[in-house]
Design a protein around this nucleic acid. Sequence first.
DNA 1: CATATGATGGACT
DNA 2: GTCCATCATATGG
Length: 189
Amino acid sequence: MRVLQRSYFSRETDVVARDLLGKLLLRRLFANLLGGIIVETEAYFGKDDPASRAFQGLKNYNKVMFEHPGRLFIYNVHRYWMLNIIAHREGVGGILIRAIEPTIGIDIMKQHRSVKSIKELTNGPGKLTLALNVDKSLNGSDVTSLDSPIYVLDNDNEYDICTSNRIGVTKDLNQHLRFFIKNNKFVSK
DNA sequence: CATATGATGGACT
DNA sequence: GTCCATCATATGG
């Protein structure tokens, strides 16, 4: 397996969002490796997407969205941090990682969250950042190197993919920009 | 299992 | 003061 490179993220945002399903998201935390299989994503565009954090234009907090692909964009909503990877062919765009299937470092991730069942560990965007110990300090970091705190490994497995409208947005576009693996029990509710 | 509701804090105007 | 790409809890089946 190899680390996904900048060229991988330099494609249309929705194409990359769909393509990321099944890939392995890894978080290096001190001597530990945490993470799992990406099972749910959402694509967000720029000035033509009213649900996007870039819709209102360049701000201090969202400037990573306007920079080159392959970096993390960490954004706060309510009390939680959202983990996004910047991806676009040109212009602006990012992908929200909404859920992963835990496979590596499960015991450590459980220490970060008091949950009874493993199903609840990372089945939501705010839940997985808690489990992976991700916060704003990682905003802007590169994901295209094994030395990065977070990176994504390629994975050959094939999955059936479903789509829907995005979850929780107040002004969605009239197209399906949420992607998830069919029948996977770690997809968010 | 499903749906409803209140708490929450960062960044905006 | 307002908005928000959420979550945990409580309740009913």
